Amino acid sequence: MVDVTRTFTVATPPRDVQEYLADFANAREWDPGTVLCAPLGTGPVGVGSRWRNVSKIAGAETELTYELTRLEPGRVVFVGRNDTATSTDDISLAPADGPGTTITYHATIEFQGAAKLAAPLAKVVFEKVGSDTEKSLTRILGATV
């Protein structure tokens, strides 16, 4: 299993951050590995909404179906699945000491079958992805002073 956590502060208020992050289609803008992220279905975003996500990480392309499994004030959780992995993105939001939002982004990836052998290398790769994601979200949602 790979486990990566980042905590950082952005200038945007929590409610706006949550609205932005809850629509996983926006991952194209902030997730450095995402090549495509398209909604599966129509209607407003809410628990049960799903997206087809294609990512390219360390030269390998993979596709997962993500589902919004939890959406409540201060919390957004997505679970992505395919035949070889389950990825959980658990995002907590809190008002910052000054203006803005403190984001704690916790990602876990559980590999199945032979893919488990890749976990040690994947940890190194996903630590870099975590840092790049933090940089992207800070750029998009505004750096704090």
Results as ranks from 00 to 15, higher is better:
14 P>W: 09
131 S>M: 12
58 A>N: 10
144 T>L: 07
86 T>S: 12
91 I>Y: 06
58 A>T: 04
33 G>F: 02
12 T>S: 12
32 P>A: 02
15 R>G: 03
46 G>Y: 02
101 T>L: 04
25 A>H: 06
103 I>L: 12
79 V>G: 00
37 C>Q: 11
58 A>Q: 06
128 K>F: 03
107 A>Y: 14
11 A>C: 03
144 T>Y: 05
135 K>L: 15
14 P>L: 07
88 T>M: 11
79 V>S: 00
54 V>M: 14
37 C>Y: 09
126 F>K: 02
41 G>E: 01
95 P>N: 13
9 T>S: 15
86 T>I: 04
95 P>K: 13
102 T>D: 08
87 S>K: 12
12 T>Q: 14
32 P>I: 03
101 T>C: 05
115 A>L: 11
127 E>T: 09
98 G>R: 13
35 V>M: 11
78 F>M: 02
71 L>M: 07
86 T>Y: 02
126 F>T: 06
68 L>R: 01
40 L>P: 06
108 T>P: 01
139 R>G: 11
130 G>N: 05
93 L>A: 01
145 V>E: 14
124 V>C: 09
5 T>C: 14
36 L>W: 12
17 V>R: 12
51 W>H: 07
22 A>P: 00
134 E>Q: 15
10 V>A: 05
136 S>T: 10
46 G>M: 08
24 F>Y: 15
24 F>T: 08
74 G>E: 10
89 D>R: 07
22 A>C: 04
141 L>E: 10
73 P>W: 13
103 I>R: 00
120 P>L: 10
41 G>R: 04
128 K>Q: 13
78 F>Y: 10
30 W>A: 04
74 G>T: 05
61 E>T: 15
69 T>I: 15
95 P>V: 12
17 V>Q: 09
138 T>K: 11
77 V>W: 09
31 D>S: 13
27 A>D: 09
23 D>K: 00
88 T>W: 05
57 I>D: 06
80 G>E: 05
117 L>S: 10
56 K>S: 11
137 L>H: 07
131 S>A: 13
113 G>F: 00
40 L>V: 08
139 R>E: 13
71 L>T: 03
14 P>Q: 09
20 Y>A: 07
82 N>L: 01
15 R>D: 14
45 V>M: 08
115 A>S: 09
127 E>W: 08
128 K>M: 06
56 K>M: 08
141 L>S: 06
115 A>V: 04
64 L>P: 01
2 V>Q: 00
46 G>P: 02
63 E>I: 04
107 A>P: 05
77 V>G: 05
66 Y>F: 11
70 R>A: 15
132 D>M: 12
121 L>G: 03
110 E>H: 08
39 P>R: 15
108 T>E: 04
73 P>K: 14
79 V>R: 02
14 P>E: 06
137 L>Y: 02
133 T>W: 00
54 V>Y: 14
117 L>M: 14
117 L>C: 05
71 L>V: 04
